[in-house]
């Protein structure tokens, strides 16, 4: 007889219990795409603090964590609000030296995760020669040589987050997670972390996953918890479901550097994720989905 499938489903309002204060947490997504924002909001609601956040290309996720006082350390290769400017709360945290930080080179950070994911203490690569960053972090970057040719290479130390949190399109109760758009660093963060939380647009039956197994980028044996969070990347995008919410982001960027911003964070703290969706997404959800449909490719002109 087949044993019943493992059930790792956890409600979103218990997500805060899965992360302890002081732990390192890698957050998936990149740019304004697919950050696990429902999880970010829930960590804020749970009052988590002293979290060492790890991001490859962070945006509103890192800025909101900084604003809410969740961060104890920030490791990143980039944090930006792109068209809406520099990330004001991350800037403030670093410029006032109130949050210690580690600035990785982008490839170095991902190769550090790759090393951990395949059980290596470090990996060599043709690194950021000439950059001032490696010398700042001798505990992360070193110089090594090819044992066969003597070529000088950069060694980057394995990076093991305590937790990785990534947002998928759909996932079953065992944690088999599928993406159809931007997955960015999600899979490699998950492979490197001690524990993995997958939030997803919808939890589906295993048979739905098995219909399109080529879309499963993270198999369930890596995953510890599965959390359903519709619009869980909002206000960043989850393609092909919805585009980034540029209007919410513009609103965010307009307030984020001001003294009144405490109110924005307090409101997120005091409402549930259902309240958040009702407040921000009512009437807007269909337009964010339509923005994906409206996006156009161009037929070759080549006149």
């Amino acid at each position: 007889m087949t044993p019943p499938p493992t059930d790792k489903v956890v409600p979103l309002d218990e997500l805060g219990d899965l992360v302890a204060d002081g732990e390192s947490v890698a957050f998936g997504g990149g740019w304004f795409a697919n950050h696990p924002m429902a999880a970010v909001r829930q960590l804020i609601r749970a009052g988590r603090k002293d979290i060492h956040a790890i991001t490859v290309v962070g945006s509103v996720d890192m800025d909101l964590l900084a604003a809410a006082g969740v961060l104890g350390h920030l490791s990143f290769s980039m944090v930006t609000l792109e068209a809406f400017g520099l990330a004001p709360n991350v800037r403030k945290a670093i410029e006032t030296a109130s949050v210690p930080f580690t600035e990785y080179t982008g490839l170095g950070l991902l190769i550090g995760l790759e090393a951990q994911g395949r059980g290596m203490p470090f990996l060599p690569y043709r690194g950021p020669f000439g950059s001032d960053l490696p010398a700042r972090y001798p505990e992360i970057y070193a110089t090594t040589t090819c044992p066969f040719t003597g070529e000088e290479l950069t060694a980057v130390r394995a990076l093991q987050p305590d937790v990785a949190i990534v947002h998928a399109l759909r996932c079953d109760a065992e944690g088999n997670a599928q993406w159809d758009g931007t997955s960015g660093p999600d899979v490699d963060m998950a492979k490197a972390a001690r524990r993995v939380i997958v939030t997803c647009e919808e939890i589906v039956d295993r048979s739905v996953i098995a219909q399109n197994p080529h879309m499963t980028k993270l198999p369930g044996y890596y995953v510890d918890a599965v959390v359903e969070a519709p619009f869980g990347a909002h206000p960043t995008s989850h393609i092909p479901r919805y585009s980034m919410d540029a209007w919410e982001l513009m609103d965010y960027a307009g307030q984020a550097g001001t003294d009144e911003f405490g109110g924005y964070v307090d409101r997120i703290r005091s409402e549930s994720e259902d309240d958040y969706r009702a407040r921000v997404l009512t009437g807007r959800d269909v337009v964010l989905a339509a923005l994906v449909d409206a996006a156009e490719t161009l037929e070759g002109a080549n006149l």
Binding site: G30, A83, S183, G184, P185, I239, V292, A295, L298
Partner: peptide, 22 residues
């Protein structure tokens, strides 16, 4: 076609492969 909210979605529409950063 370029747009702030649609560039990402458009990129996937005619693409032949999906990878991740690493």
């Amino acid at each position: 076609q370029l747009s702030f909210t649609g560039a990402e979605a458009a990129a996937y529409k005619g693409a032949v492969c999906r990878w991740g950063m690493l």
